[in-house]
Simulated scan of single mutants.
Amino acid sequence: MRVAEEVSAALATGSAVVALESTLLAHGLPPGRNRKVATAIEDAVRAAGAVPATIAVLDGQMCVGLGSAELDLVCDPDAEFLKLSARDLGPAIALGRDGATTIASTSMIAHAAGIGVFGTGGLGGVHLPAPGEVSSWDVSADLDVLAATPIVVVCSGVKSVLDIAATIEVLETRSVPVVGYRTDFFPAFYRRESRFRVPWRVDTPASAAAVIAAHRDRGPVRSGVLVANPVPVEHELDAGLHDRLLAEGMAKVAHSDVRGGDVTPVLLEHFHTASGGASLDTNEALVLANVALAAEIAVALTSE
């Protein structure tokens, strides 16, 4: 593992650090826009008083904190970065590959480096059943890693193209506290609320930090904490547009041979193209809000 000097210095002095994933940059946003967002994300963390630590695997080495040239490389589509979940880290390291880290792999690397807070877009979850099936065995590795890794993940819930009810149930079963930030309902990524309530609510970064500190001190220490932060109200995707896109996307999947983990990427691509970029605007806004909140919580935790 290679930890950037700025990140290492912050960790050594007990200063606030926020982990950031790289899959959003390499696979989640269009070329050009992804590099601008990479800078904006790190700037948002710094503005809130913390040090950003974007994580990726470069030439088989886990890198915690990237320089400008390395961010350029991650955002370059010609670099063909692999998408690395937790299971992929060993092979990528052994074979000297370049890869962008998902929530699962970012969480593991951040924890290994001593970073306790991670800001991102939307958590992976339980996938909806394929057409003709009653249930799905396709469950994101994000959930099991969060259950076994004492890290705070600040996100806007899970995407509405996933099975939100089943995802919440898995988090409960895995003893992962779910805390709504200024909301009583679990966010649905593009939309501020799903119909499912959160078990706990906080309204300040200090309150969130107190919950996290108490969980770490007295709770099942191995599990992380999920802080669910709704997309800013002014950037929420229009309800009618959202529902139309979701229905169209599900119909597209039903009439294709797409199954398993390929379903969600197809649905999200439909959202991006059929919304004329509106869903990308929402995605960018919620990520910036989440990393800023993560930084505020990280700063508050330094005083706990």
Rank of each mutant, 00 (worst) to 15 (best):
L267E: 00
A26Y: 02
D163S: 12
V253R: 01
L73H: 13
D257M: 12
L82R: 14
I55F: 02
E133P: 07
V170H: 14
K159G: 04
D76N: 14
G99Q: 03
C63M: 11
G119F: 01
P205G: 10
L237H: 02
T13N: 12
S156C: 10
V179K: 03
P220W: 11
V74T: 11
V154F: 03
A285C: 10
S136N: 08
V266C: 11
T101N: 08
G261Q: 13
L95F: 14
T39H: 14
V202M: 09
V134D: 14
Y181D: 05
V176C: 12
L245T: 02
L288I: 08
G180P: 03
A228T: 02
L288F: 04
D262W: 06
H111R: 15
D138R: 05
A56G: 04
C63A: 13
S279N: 12
E236W: 03
D78L: 09
P52M: 00
P31I: 06
T183I: 14
V161C: 11
A228K: 00
G124S: 05
N290H: 12
R244G: 15
V202I: 13
V152C: 07
L241G: 03
D138C: 08
I115Y: 01
R2D: 13
T273L: 08
A130M: 10
T173Y: 05
L143F: 03
R244P: 06
Y190H: 06
A274P: 04
A247S: 11
M1H: 10
D59A: 15
P220D: 12
H242L: 09
G240P: 05
A165Q: 15
S140P: 08
V134Q: 11
S275M: 00
G122Y: 01
E6R: 13
L66G: 00
R259F: 07
P187T: 07
D138K: 08
F186E: 02
F186L: 09
T54D: 01
V158G: 00
A112R: 15
E70I: 06
A12K: 12
C75M: 14
T173E: 14
V154H: 02
A100D: 04
L82I: 11
E304Y: 07
D257K: 14
R197I: 12
A295I: 11
T101D: 04
A300V: 04
L20D: 02
R35N: 03
H111F: 13
A289R: 10
A12F: 06
V299H: 06
F185A: 08
R259C: 06
T204W: 07
T204K: 11
E42R: 06
G240V: 08
A110G: 06
G32W: 07
A53Y: 00
V233T: 14
